[in-house]
Design a protein around this nucleic acid. Sequence first.
DNA 1: TTGACTCAACATCCTTTGCTACAA
DNA 2: TTGTAGGTTTCCATGTTGAGTCA
Length: 444
Amino acid sequence: MTTLRFEDGTIHLATDLELSIPGVEADPRSGGYRAPAMEYAAIRDELERRGIEFEDTLALESDLPLSTTYDLREYQRAALDAWLDAGATGVVELPTGAGKTVLAVGAMAALSVPTLVVVPTIDLQDQWIRELETEFDVPIGRFGGGEQTQEPITVSTYDSAYLRADDVGGDFGLVVFDEVHHLGGQGYQDIPRMLAAPARLGLTATFERPDGAHEAVEELVGPRVYQLSVDDLAGDHLADYEIRRLEVELTPDEREAYEQAQETFVSYLRTSGISMQSGSDYQKLVMRSGNDPRAREALLAKQRARDIMMGSEAKVEHLSRLLARHRDDRVIIFTASTDLVYRIATRYLVPPITAETGTKERRQILERFRDGTYDTVVAANVLDEGVDVPDANVAILLSGSGSEREFTQRLGRVLRPKSDGSTAVLYELVSVETAEERVANRRR
DNA sequence: TTGACTCAACATCCTTTGCTACAA
DNA sequence: TTGTAGGTTTCCATGTTGAGTCA
C-alpha cells in the first residue's frame, strides 16, 4: 500500500514500489520517499498519472461553508480569474488601496478549503481577522501576538508561520501570503517549503525586488499572474495624483561638510580598486570594513554625507511653507531617519511616530489623525507598510531611500479616492548636487 | 496582564565610466 | 548590433518588526 503523510514540514511517501519522481528522494531511514511539503501536489498528480493507488492522510479539501457578499470590481474579477486559470497558484500585484483583501476573500470562497493567511505585522493580522470574521461565518484562528489558536481559517504572522509551519503545514489547502515580497528573505523562504497547500496566492503592491529574490518567490508561490499599476487605477478606483519635486540648496556649511565626507568615501573607492557598480560591490566594501579601518571610515563618511543631504536645513525650512500652503489638508511627512522626525516634531509641533513610539501611543496618534484632531503627522519608515494609516491627501517626502517599494508605499498613503474627487499631491524634497538626485531618480 | 527589555531577522546601504563575455 | 550581467559568504550603521523572557 502507498501512503502520503505530512511529517515535520515534509511529505513522507510510504510504499513498496520503486519510484522515481523529480524532487522526491529515497529516505532509507524510514523506508520510503521524502520531499519538502510543497511538493505534495506534484507527488499526488504523479501517482494519479501513473495509476498508482494510494491513501492520502492529508485532508486539505474539506468543504468549508465559505461564501462572500463582496461584489468584485472588474479588475479584481480579472485578477481572480487569472489566478484560477493558472491553477490557483501565483502572485497578484495590485497597488495599495486596490482591494487585495477582497480579492483574497474571493479566492477563499472560490476554493472553500482550509486556509492559512500569512501577514508581516500584528496590525495587519488584526485587520485581516476583523475582515474575515465579518465576511465568513466560521471561527478565525491566530498564530502570533502571543496567541496560538488554530482554526480551518487561521491568520499568522510570518514569524509565527516560520515557527509553526513544520507542525501545521499539512492542515491547509490554500495559503495566502499578504505582502508576498517578504518571502524573498532567506529565513522566510522555508515557510512555503514546509507547507503542503497546493493552492497559493501571493499579494503585493511591489513584486520585484532589487536583489532579485522575487525569482525565489516565483518558485515557491508561482509566477506573477496579474498586474496593475497605480496609473492603471488612478482617477477611477484610486485618487488622481500629482508628484512635485522641489529642489533645495545645502547651506555653505552643509555643502562643505558634505563634500568633505563624500570625498573621503570616493577617494577610498579610488585607491581600493572597488568600482561600485552594483549593490554587491557595496557589500564588498561593507565586508572589508570589518577589518580595514579605512574602509570603515569611508562608510561612516558616506553615512555622514547621507545625513547631511537628507536632513538639510533648507528642507526643514521649506517644510514650513508647505505646511502653511496645506493648512486645511491632511498631511503625512515621511523621513528616512528618526532624528529628523523628532527635529520636525519639535519645531512644528507635529506628532511623531517612529519605531520608538509604543503601540498604545502610536494607536492614539493615528486615531486622532483619523478623527481630525491632528491634521499632520511625521514618521520615519513605520507607516510605509503593514499599518492601517488613515487617509491623507498630501504626502511630503523629506527624505527616503532609493527603494521603489518605499516610494510606491508612501504614494499609496494618499491614493484612497477623495469624496470631493480632488487630486492627491506628493512632494519630494531633493538636495541639489548631491547623491540624492540620483536616489530620487532611481526610486521612480 | 502589562511593560521593559533582549534578540534575531530583514531592508537599505552604492557610482557614473568604461571593460568583457554572452545572449537575443 | 544591442543590451545586460558580470565573481562573494558573513557584515559598517540605522530603522523596524515579532517572539520570548522576566519582573
